[in-house]
Design a protein around this nucleic acid. Sequence first.
DNA 1: TTTCAAATGCAAACCATTTGCAAAAAAATC
DNA 2: GATTTTTTTGCAAATGGTTTGCATTTGAAA
Lengths: 137, 137
Amino acid sequence: MAEQKLSIPKGYRKTKQREAILKVLERAEYPINAEQIFMELKNRGIEISLSTIYRNLEMLTKEGLVVKSYMMNEDKARFALPDKKNYLVCEKCGKIVIIDNCPFDKFKEELIEVHGFDITGHSIEVYGVCPDCQKKG
Amino acid sequence: MAEQKLSIPKGYRKTKQREAILKVLERAEYPINAEQIFMELKNRGIEISLSTIYRNLEMLTKEGLVVKSYMMNEDKARFALPDKKNYLVCEKCGKIVIIDNCPFDKFKEELIEVHGFDITGHSIEVYGVCPDCQKKG
DNA sequence: TTTCAAATGCAAACCATTTGCAAAAAAATC
DNA sequence: GATTTTTTTGCAAATGGTTTGCATTTGAAA
């Protein structure tokens, strides 16, 4: 998984908080929530407030740079770069693995044909048990 | 889409509220939220409280009879029978269309092979523009 | 019919997220 | 580079969907 490079969209100012949030999202290996971004930045000694994080996440989502999603049995929103929006979740340990080369396109055509929708995006979440947890039990 | 018949799981009592909730979920054509269930029952003259609805939805979800999901740009959870968990959403008018015969199985094998997960479930959300909205421009 | 655990309703509590507003920081203008 | 203008931030308070405590009601077993 190559680390995708993000930049602040046109029309928005460059602030250290904004840049720090983008960096965390770039480095994240899977969708993370606002609190996690907050803690990550705190650990790096970067001062920021939760409301700033929320406001920026909203902006980035609206601009299409970031995708918001919810996971089973979780009440908080997670955010990730678009290339990390399809993933597998282990029901036992919670491990998250991104689906690269999402095979969605293979049946996209079929969906268009059957329902007539002009498809602009999708999100796939798959649950199961990861190899490690299979061994353990 | 055949209307799937639900019954109260073993070990739980039969109450009029519980049965009413199940009936609403059976008849729903796509995932609905707690408030919608509440209004639907109120319209039918059935007395029930929101907390009872939430408690039952939690139970049904835990028992696997119902699937919880979140939609883009919405802050409320939706619930539906498992056969209605994969759907298309129109970005313009909000129309929701269930994906029958989900083509997921076609690439399930591929996912198992690549990631080694023992897959137990999945959820697919597709965004786009429905035929009606395409005509309108 | 009695008994007892489960289910309900209500109001209060929770908690992730949003919002109002004044202060701080960017970018634009002079 | 100083000044002006507009955006962004932080804080605290508000919001709103969801959860919870508790007294009461109800279902079903005895």
